[in-house]
Design a protein around this nucleic acid. Structure first.
Lengths: 244, 244
DNA sequence: CGCATATTTGAATTCTTTCAATCAACGTGG
DNA sequence: CCACGTTGATTGAAAGAATTCAAATATGCG
């Protein structure tokens, strides 16, 4: 499998061979593995290294004192899961592994070194963090104004687009390791209701979901149901003036 | 009134006189004024200058094709409302003025110049954007897992803390220019329900809200009702090692 | 004073949750 | 290879939270 970070960043800037080699330097830092349902970072921690997910899915989440829990972001291969080390701040949320996660720990100095020598990489990383912010805003819209069916279908669309951008989809399907309970924590609903919504989606042939695999027979139909517009993902925007 | 940007950033790093002078350079760029209910930037625009709010409140919002509308962030004095000019991307949301807004337009070059010469300013700005991301995540939790009363009280707590950090509160009150309809668009509810929740809050003496002014007789009680913890705002974290 | 905007009220409806139980799938040990 | 235990998915009925729609009151501004 190709380096997911390189694949992702090539969406945002055309990277030279040297840029790519530099990124490979990053991803050849010490590797760590996490089991499903394991915390990678906990609220209150002050992480000292940047962490980049190479494979597997992780998620940021926050919890209320009485146990209510909300996933605030999904972290897919090629995503940074800790990038605030430059300000050495206390984590205000936790990060957990959804399935088997492999990540590399990158010392800030190594990271900065790559950025100063490779401006295109820096720019591409800037794009990536801009897209993260945009996704966060879209989630606010999702939770605040979309109804249950739209919420769930929107999530499926977003995940499919993101995975496709890093080459992790098949024609009309992709991995979907979340249980219904976990899906519920992502879209702010109860597991029971997720189940019911899923059934109507299946009946309408909008999605199939079996054995941790999501199949989307008609992506456009799903997008319509979700009121999904991919503009906020800012994909495929490689600018000519940024050529390597 | 003191420069709100300076006040805000001093939360994050101790700024030298020179740093502060540099910030004043930024805020003495050309000023623009906007009327209430006016758009400052629209979805699809590609803004060319950074914009910093000096006075008044603005808000980021997204809309669904059928008109449903969600505020995704409140922009208060001292906040940047456009900071993606370095990647020259299309806006994926709009920004509107809630009341009379004064902002300055800062050319990216001027901005970068200040940052290269004043590392403490750069670091403080990094903090500020980290806090923005944290607030965005907290809003996701708010919309996804808090019930109506908690949502509204949480918003009030957050706004009060933010305003206090820039010196814009009185003892137990602050400005609150949002109509009930606008509040509804912030917390993902209907105006009618906002009204009803407000009435119970008034009855419980948790808040008073009259004439665009919010009074909080007992902040701790309000925080309890909201399940509010200010940790995510990362306020008052000036680190000794960053002294000027 | 009077219009326009904002707030308040009521009743009915809809969506989602809650609670409890059942069913299915899967991996393990006997 | 099958019983068993665990986790995840599904179902039903009832309760609850929030929305909808429509109308009535307030409030503020020119």
């Amino acid at each position: 499998m190709q380096n997911p970070l390189v694949t992702k960043l090539e969406q945002f800037a055309r990277l030279s061979d040297e840029d790519q080699r530099a990124l490979h330097t990053l991803t050849s830092q010490p590797v760590r593995r996490y089991q499903p349902d394991t915390d990678i970072v906990c609220e209150g921690d002050v992480p000292q290294t940047i962490r980049l997910v190479l494979s597997g899915w992780a998620y940021r989440y926050k919890q209320l004192p009485d146990g209510r829990r909300q996933v605030v972001a999904l972290i897919l291969p090629g995503d940074l899961c800790v990038d605030n080390v430059f300000v050495l701040s206390e984590m205000d949320h936790s990060i957990g592994a959804l399935n088997d996660v492999t990540l590399v720990e990158i010392p800030p100095a190594v990271f900065e070194a790559v950025m100063t020598v490779h401006p295109r990489v820096t720019r591409a990383l800037g794009w990536a963090s801009l897209v993260n912010a945009a996704m966060q805003r879209e989630w606010v819209l999702n939770l605040g104004r979309r109804v249950a069916v739209e919420r769930l279908t929107h999530l499926f669309c977003e995940v499919f687009y993101r995975l496709r951008a890093i080459g992790l989809t098949q024609e009309d399907s992709c991995e979907m390791p979340l249980t219904q309970t976990e899906l519920a924590d992502v879209i702010g609903m109860t597991p029971v209701h997720v189940n019911r919504v899923l059934q109507t989606l299946r009946r309408q042939k909008l999605v199939e979901l079996r054995g941790r695999r999501l199949t989307i027979p008609d992506l456009e139909a799903l997008e319509r149901a979700a009121l999904f517009t991919p503009n906020y993902l800012h994909l495929g925007r490689v600018e000519a003036q940024f050529d390597a």
